[in-house]
Design a protein around this nucleic acid. Structure first.
Length: 901
RNA sequence: GGGAGUUUAGCUCAGCUGGUUCAGAGCAUCUGCCUUACAAGCAGAGGGUCACUGGUUCGAACCCAGUAAUUCCCA
């Protein structure tokens, strides 16, 4: 087989992914092994793969592959959610192209189009995940509107309703006037926009008794505003004045004492409203007079309830004004705003207009400005369920990684608000509530059951199913998602089935911190409510993928690369490595293509190391030459395994990857292979090595492939199957290999080789600074003061430093370039004379450093309080430092003395 | 406005219970090399008042307080 000079990922990736599928390696069924389970955070069925998914799913795949290689029964359940509003938008767009309007269709007709769309286009994202190597059990792929999952939604709705945890009521919701549905807080994107702040004057009505004795002088105090018979409010939404229910002032506000108990007239429509007092009003914000519009502002709504104010809703569902507005009926809210401003101006009650920056909510799906709107909705009570869900996290049954999110989690759970679970859409599970002709309603799974309930409710026993009308709305998509870890294993319909008992609770959940509350927290609530158990043990929260300028990646900025393009360019392994390199848990990731390039280069390094070994052939006549090196690398490898294990246990994936990277690149390629590789023999096609070296090296390489596999599944599998490793059975694959067990670590050998590496570096430095060619051999003499046995490493030293031999000396070698490693002295005798001045300078600098060091050590040791207070091992360590420094100082001083001769 | 976090090399980040003259890694930069595995590479090198100010301590990047900048969450 001829091997290309660089690694070509493309064929390897397609080939091995299908092979893994054919062999059923991703498939999991319950057995006697320990399970390891991850449920995917179901991506939106309309979605396409973006960088966030790429990061999130790479992490999941690394965890799953590693668990699989640790002999666990690894199960990664994939799937998508039905994303009501996003999907409806897609379907409406599709219909529009065919000239059909949603309003022309019945619910059933619309839904059949929606399913058509879903079958055709939905779930593209799952296929894209395969490109990055995701080892999901695809046979388990679930969709939140699958029959069983939908049933679970309906059943839990009814269950919670019967428990009093689901209720119907009028509340303020985020209203999307374009989508004509309520949306969740999380689907509202706040943006700072430039607005105008309108100062509007409301006429103050005098009380009868005060007629003729107006204390007008007092009222003209500030801002040049005409305050005589008026009060002034500031608002960004003048079109809502028709919905005003009161003006509120702070009772402590001395400027407005005269307004207490008064009434004012709303401009243009001349409706009378009271002035109310509440400390809620910030005196120094705006004018200190606050218009209260309970139907169109959340805070005003609360204030309205407190003061028993009427709720006047002047907006239609589509954002136009209704007849309650009494003027501008039918106008869009924004058109109305402009017109009102003009009308106020003409009426002479618009005192001034200022530029003003404020936060405005936009719908994530339709980009329409969100309207806080009162409406009749279904809600799920949170407080009761939040308590145990909070405890699981606080007492450590569920770990959030990184831990800092525990604070935020607690804060949210302690201030949880009820969850609006109804949506004015068709795509989703229809709310199982039926309305009686008299306006009462019942909650039941089927219309027949509903009828039974209805008959209990009303004396009218002639009621028929046709008389019942089912609620038009559907349940929020998140009401499906919160059941996900249970429903994917059919844990609602069949709560004691083998699968749920085996896989649940799942192990790890990998998701983004922005959905900690409304998804993760709710899954924990559902886990407790429906199974009395946590849904998962660890929640790994990934950061947000940003561009290198720190901006969030978004379509509108166009700063997000297409992950599939990246894979095309750098290979899936390269991109995986690139994503992981720079992403410590929970921290945002400043993405830069150069990380992927680094990943690709790493793959290439592995490829070439393989090529080198592949070019070797055993020569039985050669005696074993590299026992020390082999023992060293074996120790070093085991040491890395311990380190990597530790990082994984802490979910420090980027550190685990970095440790692997350094082991492979630095220790294996740069040191081990250089130590053992045969010197080039001319005209020989295959380089000859002894048997021990080749066998050991091949085994090392195979172990390296194993530890690389979770990070770089494709290249590791590709090389695994090379004939270098001998014949392999069809199922003998890297993906299902067992991770190497941790073996012995010879620490003495490790420190010996670390010293050796420093010696080699020093000799190379001598070579570099004297501009001696790499090919010219140098002599080296060692005066060992330490216990290190350099004879053991002699041949390695000769090879790596390109020496013509090693001498052992008892005394200094005069006239040679010298250096110190540890406390041992080394001499390189060169042809040319040593530059005495330069050498003197170098040694003097070293002496200054060492004496400074010694001084600081001595200062500590002479300090009685240090000796008394510090731990004994720390004091011992200082004593050792002192001894070492003294030895080195003596050596350097000798060196200087020798130079002077 | 309330809460949480962050601030260490040009960039992205480590630095666990304070203790090597402790300031580290990767990338980038610079210098020299196309040395038969790899220029997607090899051999070297430089680079930081650990945001600022004070405190605690024998000893502070690390603990405490304040200040500044910045991010996120909630309103």
């Amino acid at each position: 087989m001829s091997i290309s000079k660089t690694y070509q990922p493309k064929q390897a990736e397609d080939k091995w992914y299908s092979y893994w599928m054919e062999q059923g390696f991703f498939r999991s069924v319950p057995d006697e092994r320990e399970p390891y389970t991850i449920v995917i955070p179901p991506p939106n069925v309309t979605g396409v793969l973006h960088m966030g998914h790429m990061l999130n799913n790479t992490i999941q795949d690394v965890l799953v592959r590693r668990a699989r290689m640790k002999g666990k029964n690894a199960c990664w359940v994939p799937g998508t959610d039905h994303a009501s509003i996003a999907t409806e938008a897609k379907v409406v767009a599709m219909l529009k192209e065919r000239g059909i309007a949603k309003t022309d269709l019945t619910r059933e007709e619309f839904l059949s189009y929606a399913w058509e769309w879903k079958e055709k286009y939905g779930g593209i994202i799952l296929d894209q995940l395969k490109k990055l190597g995701a080892s999901c059990d695809w046979e388990r792929t679930k969709f939140t509107m699958d029959p069983d999952l939908s049933d679970a939604v309906i059943d839990t709705f009814i269950h919670l309703y019967n428990k009093g945890l689901v209720y119907r009521g009028v509340r303020m919701v985020n209203w999307d006037p374009q989508g004509k549905t309520a949306v969740s807080d999380e689907e509202v994107i706040r943006k700072e926009v430039n607005q105008k702040l309108y100062y509007i004057q409301y006429k103050v009505l005098s009380l009868e008794s005060e007629v003729g004795s107006q204390k007008s002088d007092k009222l003209t105090q500030d801002s040049g505003l005409k305050t005589k018979d008026y009060l002034t409010i500031a608002t960004t939404r003048p079109e809502t004045i028709m919905a005003d229910a009161a003006i509120c002032i702070n009772p402590n506000d001395e400027r407005y004492v005269h307004l207490h108990g008064k009434k004012v007239l709303i401009p243009l429509i001349d409706r009378e409203i009271p002035v109310i007092l509440d400390e809620y009003v910030t005196m120094d914000f705006g004018t200190g007079c606050l218009k209260v519009t309970p139907a169109h502002d959340l805070n005003d709504y609360e204030l309205g309830i407190k003061h028993n104010l009427p709720v006047i809703d002047i907006l239609n569902d589509d954002g136009t004004l209704n007849d309650k507005a009494t003027i501008l009926i039918g106008e869009d809210r924004f058109a109305a705003r402009k017109k009102i401003a003009v009308m106020l101006e003409e009426a002479g009650v618009l005192a001034k207009v200022e530029e003003y920056k404020s936060q405005v909510g936009y719908s994530e799906r339709t980009n329409a400005v969100i309207e806080p709107k009162l409406s009749m909705q279904w809600f799920c009570k949170m407080e009761e369920m939040a308590k145990p869900a909070l405890d699981y996290v606080l007492n450590g049954d569920i770990k959030l990684i990184p831990e800092k999110f525990t604070n935020t989690y607690r804060h949210w759970m302690e201030n949880v608000k009820d969850w609006c679970i109804s949506r004015q859409l068709w795509w989703g599970q229809q709310i199982p509530a039926w309305y009686l002709p008299n306006g009462q309603y019942v909650v039941a799974k089927t219309v027949e059951e509903a009828l039974e309930e209805a008959i209990k409710l009303t004396p009218d026993s002639r009621l028929k199913t046709q008389d019942l009308r089912q609620d038009e709305d559907v349940v929020d998509t998140w009401f499906s998602s919160w059941l996900w870890p249970i429903s994917v294993f059919n844990g609602f319909k069949d709560p004691e089935n083998e699968e749920i008992n085996y896989y649940y609770p799942t192990n790890d959940l990998v998701t983004a911190p922005e959905i900690l509350f409304f998804w993760v927290a709710r899954m924990i609530m559902a886990g407790h409510e429906f199974r009395g158990q946590v849904p998962f043990k660890n929640v790994y929260l990934t950061g947000i993928v940003r561009d290198k300028l720190g901006r969030k990646m978004s379509k509108s900025l166009g700063n997000s690369p297409d992950p599939l393009d990246l894979i095309e360019k750098f290979g899936a392994d390269g991109v995986r490595v690139g994503m992981l390199m720079s992403s410590p848990a929970g921290n945002d990731l400043m993405f830069d293509e150069s990380h992927c390039e680094q990943g690709r280069n790493f793959a290439n390094k592995i490829w070439n190391a393989f090529k080198l070994i592949k070019g070797w052939e055993i020569d039985e006549s050669l005696s074993s030459a590299n026992t020390t090196t082999i023992n060293w690398f074996s120790s070093r490898f085991n040491q890395s395994l311990v380190e990597i294990d530790g990082y994984f246990n802490q979910f420090r994936l980027s550190d685990a990857l970095m440790a692997t990277y350094k082991l492979v690149w630095d220790d294996f390629c740069a040191w081990y292979l250089e130590m053992v590789k045969p010197s080039y023999q001319e005209g020989v096609e295959k380089q000859k090595v002894d048997k021990e070296t080749l066998l050991a090296t091949v085994e090392f390489f195979e172990n390296i492939l194993k530890i690389l596999h979770p990070f770089m599944p494709f290249i590791s599998e590709e090389l695994w199957h090379d004939e270098l490793f001998g014949e392999r059975a069809a199922t003998d694959c890297c993906i299902v290999a067992n991770l190497p067990a941790i073996g012995e670590i010879d620490t003495q050998l490790l420190t010996g080789v670390e010293t050796l590496k420093q010696v080699v570096t020093e000799v190379r430095n001598v070579r570099n600074s004297k501009q001696i060619k790499p090919k010219d051999k140098l002599p080296l003499a060692i005066k060992a003061n330490s216990a290190i046995d350099y004879k053991l490493y002699e041949s390695i030293l000769i090879k790596l430093a390109n020496l013509d031999g090693v001498d052992y000396a008892d005394t200094k070698i005069a006239g040679a370039t010298a250096f110190i490693v540890g406390t041992d002295e080394f001499f390189v005798a060169l042809q040319e004379n040593v530059d005495v001045d330069a050498e003197h300078e170098r040694l003097t600098a070293e002496l200054v450093y060492l004496e400074g060091f010694l001084k600081s050590v001595n200062a500590k040791l002479q300090n009685e309080r240090f000796v008394q207070n510090a731990k004994p091992e720390i004091v011992d360590n200082e004593l050792k430092k002192k001894a070492d420094a003294e030895t080195k100082i003596a050596i350097v001083k000798d060196g200087l003395a020798a130079l002077a001769k």
